[in-house]
């Protein structure tokens, strides 16, 4: 709960300057539900493991900024959007299935 609150709209980790590949991730949540917190925790853990130093997470609370839902076509929450690298990818759910998240983010080939 505290985490989301603090991280809303903030860059969590600075990407490494030398790698051109910056992972720009947006996590859309609705309030601080347990599911939102789980999703954020799962994402954080995963990024630390696989994308250390070259990712950026922005958490958007739709209850506070409902107009932002339209832009990324958000229906379900939580939704993780990979803005960069292109193409845009969307992963919905609490990100508890790590394998599927990795596939969804193209961090692991195949399904």
């Amino acid at each position: 709960m505290r985490v989301t609150e603090k991280t809303t709209g903030k860059t969590l980790a600075k990407p490494n300057a030398k790698t051109s590949e910056v992972w720009d991730l947006k996590l859309y949540v609705a309030g601080q539900s347990p599911r939102s917190l789980t999703a954020f925790a799962n994402l954080k853990k995963l990024c630390e493991e696989h994308l250390k130093g070259k990712y950026r997470i922005e958490v958007v609370d739709l209850l506070k900024n409902p107009q932002l839902a339209k832009g990324d076509q958000i229906l379900a929450v939580p939704t993780l959007v990979r803005k960069l690298p292109v193409p845009i990818r969307k992963i919905i759910g609490d990100l508890s299935n790590t394998e599927r998240v990795l596939v969804g983010l193209d961090l692991r080939p195949g399904g």
């Binding site: 609705a30 076509q73 379900a76 609490d94 596939v103």
Partner: peptide
């Protein structure tokens, strides 16, 4: 008019979720 775009191939489902996003958009 709000266009809600759902494309399965662009969406990966991992675990629990709900459609609060839709509710929020509608409410907004």
């Amino acid at each position: 008019v709000d266009y809600v775009y759902v494309e399965r191939s662009e969406i990966e489902e991992t675990g629990e979720y709900d459609l609060e996003g839709l509710f929020i958009r509608l409410d907004h």
